[in-house]
């Protein structure tokens, strides 16, 4: 295969675009897609500060590097989940990456916040991925607001967005369908949230990470077995194979014709939000979901005889 632009041997084949690129031309294409997303949806305005959520995976580190190269004022945010082995490895990747590139980094440690994910898994009777996502989003928003950042950027790619849109559509979840998209404007105690990689696939972000020598945390989360999004991604991979371009068509079509309709419904039926009485984060109840999780975990941990034994052993 030859690079479509410069005709040297290609390294990256993109069937969805019926094309292939060499490294240099792929980088130009990649940057063009990010700039197009930023310009089209006004994700970042000149001079704005951006907090970038960093998990240690290929997408978030790629986003951080690309936004930095585009000249944006970026600061990383890593939430250390407190999962044995896995969290330390992910955090080391993030810290190493930021040190290597001289980037600012803020770390939230859930152990210090009294809500490590292993305890959530042990004491809360709901899917741990759902609770973990809620806790991470809570801290992303809180740090963005308290730090005075103009927006919070996440590394969601096209595959993530299509899988999530598909899941929301299967449930006809009007609340989520009303605001899913590359930009969620700031309102009611929420920072502006942006997804500058939404036009790029997982394969493309993986290629970018590889050719830029980004060392990533690739081990799957030990708690995420059977996550439904993984199955949805496989299903969409088949659709895309049989009909290249299906993903971006489905997503762009939703943004143009689906989301506005759901936004109207949500405007009429949505819940009023007010500050949480404990942490001031926006919530439709008196105490927000994360503070309620923290209260429940704290109570059940205190009543757990096994943990009491742990504490005695730790002191000894």
């Amino acid at each position: 295969m030859k690079c479509r632009k410069c005709k040297v041997p290609a390294e990256i084949s993109l069937p969805s675009h019926n094309t292939a690129f060499c490294r240099a031309c792929f980088s130009t294409y990649f940057t063009g897609q990010v700039e197009r997303a930023i310009d089209k949806h006004k994700l970042i305005l000149p001079g704005e500060s951006v907090l970038v959520a960093l998990s240690g995976g290929k997408d978030s580190l790629t986003l951080m590097l690309e936004l930095s190269r585009l000249g944006h004022d970026v600061t990383g945010l890593h939430v250390d989940l407190g999962i044995p082995v896995s969290s330390a490895a992910a955090r080391a990747k993030v810290e190493g990456f930021c040190a290597q590139h001289g980037m600012k980094l803020h770390v939230v440690e859930l152990i210090k916040e009294g809500l490590p994910i292993p305890d959530v898994k042990k004491y809360i009777n709901r899917p741990v991925c759902s609770a973990c996502g809620k806790i991470k989003r809570h801290w992303f928003n809180r740090v963005a607001l308290e730090g005075g950042f103009h927006c919070l950027a996440t590394g969601h790619n096209l595959d993530d967005e299509v899988a999530r849109l598909f899941a929301n559509t299967l449930r006809w979840d009007a609340g989520y369908l009303s605001d899913q998209g590359p930009c969620l404007q700031a309102e009611s105690g929420f920072a502006r949230k942006i997804k500058p990689l939404y036009r790029l696939t997982e394969f493309e972000t993986a290629c970018y990470a590889f050719i830029n020598g980004i060392s990533i945390h690739s081990a799957p989360c030990p708690y995420s077995g059977g996550a439904s999004f993984t199955g949805h991604k496989a299903l969409w991979s088949n659709l895309e194979y049989n009909s290249p371009g299906s993903k971006i068509s489905f997503y762009d079509g939703f943004l143009k014709r689906g989301r506005p309709a759901f936004a109207l419904v949500e405007k009429e039926e949505g819940h009023e939000l007010s500050p949480c009485t404990s942490c001031a984060s926006p919530t439709s109840t008196e105490v927000c979901g994360v503070c309620r999780l923290k209260i429940a975990v704290t109570e059940r941990r205190a009543a757990d005889p096994d943990r009491a034994t742990d504490r005695v052993r730790d002191k000894a």
């Binding site: 295969m1 390294e11 595959d159 997982e202 993986a206 590889f210």
Partner: peptide, 30 residues
């Protein structure tokens, strides 16, 4: 990603006897 040494390989590339190839799956699982 299909990796040989420091290069990415497109599907049409010939694989030679003695090659060492890395297959790096790209789907994040959480």
């Amino acid at each position: 990603l299909v990796i040989r040494g420091s290069e990415l390989l497109t599907p049409d590339i010939q694989i030679q006897d003695g090659d060492e190839i890395h297959i790096r799956k790209v789907t994040s699982t959480g």
